[in-house]
Simulated assay, not measured.
Amino acid sequence: MKKLTLQMLAKMAGVGVATVDRVLNDRGGVSPETVRKVLQVAREAGLKRQLPEAYRQPWQIEVFLSGNASFFFQRLTRDFSAIASQLGYQRLTLHRTCIPESQPEKLAQAIVESSQKRDGLIVFGHDYAAIHQALAYCQAAGVPVITIVTDIPDASRLCHVGINQYQAGRTAGLLMSKTAVTGEVIMISGRTDYLAHRQRIEGFREAVTARAPHIRLREVLTGEDRRERIRGLLDDALRHAEEVAGIYNTGLGNSEITSVLQRHGLPGNCTFITHELYSLTRTLLCDDVVSFTLDQNAPQHARLAVDLMLRHLETGYQPEMYSDGKVALNIVTAENLD
């Protein structure tokens, strides 16, 4: 049999001779995917020499999260840090970058730049053209991307990690239909250009309409995650309401909603459903102001995203788009608080 040369291996692997040389001599500077491919070709061709490990340096993973001050993203940032510490610096280095949700172009540029120096990206972003283009760039460069919390449909991504937002809305609608008395229910939406809030409202509306003929749904108050706007819209809605049976809030503003409810003498007298368990919602549950809070389970987001990324980088595993990264939704009441 002819002696294997670098040129022969390069041709079989579909890469350059210099790339094969770097891989076989463990010089670095080659993407993990290409390293795996070259080493696999070398093994299958029967190259008689000791081969380096596929990747001995810690994986470089960047996490892009929202720069807003919400409890959920503060918690998620801490959870990613804890996961990285548990796995150890020899296995991965986790880089965290927070960018305001209102700056998709800035996020897109950061994603492109990061893809040139990281092995994988975990991205929280919204359904904007600039983000789609950035993720397509990553795919072309062979850098895997996992979206987290809010899905970006049809974007180039390895998989999505998060709860089913539409299902969360339907769950809230079921709870409302079972607990609210006859009357009007007011829905308060976060930013309507964000898919998660639209899906929650859609699911809630469909579940209530199907299950609760005794409930009249008012038009959605588009709070747009602006606290004073939420306060003003809800106050005006309550002044013109006949009999308020419930409140459903998909986003921030629980403190403002509570103050308006207090002004109208409604705490404890209507079903109030919101999202995320944090210090304020915990207090409101205990004080019988909030009836249920649907928690997204931030720790599971971090664990699943990192586990799936490492599994893909280390073994080439291709996760299913949604089922592998599905996060369990927690329904919290005053009776099951930890």
Score class of each variant (00 low, 15 high):
E243V: 12
E314A: 12
V289G: 02
A245M: 08
L284D: 07
A305M: 06
L238D: 04
Q318N: 03
Q296I: 02
P267K: 11
H301Y: 15
D287H: 11
H264V: 11
V290N: 01
D288A: 12
S323P: 00
L233W: 10
I257D: 06
L313V: 07
T271P: 02
F272L: 03
S323Y: 00
L308F: 03
R263D: 13
H275M: 11
E320S: 02
R229N: 14
R216E: 13
L233R: 01
L238R: 01
L266D: 13
D225R: 04
S255T: 09
G223C: 08
V306Q: 05
V208K: 03
G232I: 01
D235L: 02
D307W: 00
G223K: 06
Q318R: 13
T281Q: 07
H301G: 07
P213Q: 01
Q300D: 15
I273C: 06
S259E: 14
N254W: 04
H275N: 14
V306L: 05
Q318C: 05
L217P: 04
G232V: 02
R263M: 12
L277R: 12
A245H: 06
L266K: 08
E242S: 14
L285A: 08
A241K: 03
L261G: 03
R231K: 14
E243W: 00
R216P: 00
C286S: 15
E224P: 02
R282F: 06
H312E: 12
Y278R: 04
L313F: 02
A210S: 12
H264K: 07
T222L: 11
G253H: 07
L294H: 05
L308W: 03
R282L: 07
R239Y: 07
Q300H: 08
M321A: 10
S279K: 11
R282G: 02
T222K: 10
R211K: 11
L284K: 05
S279A: 15
V290Q: 01
D236Q: 12
M321I: 04
T274N: 04
R227Q: 11
R231W: 13
V220W: 01
E228A: 09
P213V: 01
T209D: 06
V260S: 05
G223S: 09
D307R: 10
H275C: 09
V244W: 05
L234S: 06
A210E: 14
I257Y: 03
D307E: 15
I247G: 07
P319Q: 01
T271F: 03
T274S: 15
S259K: 08
D324F: 00
G253A: 08
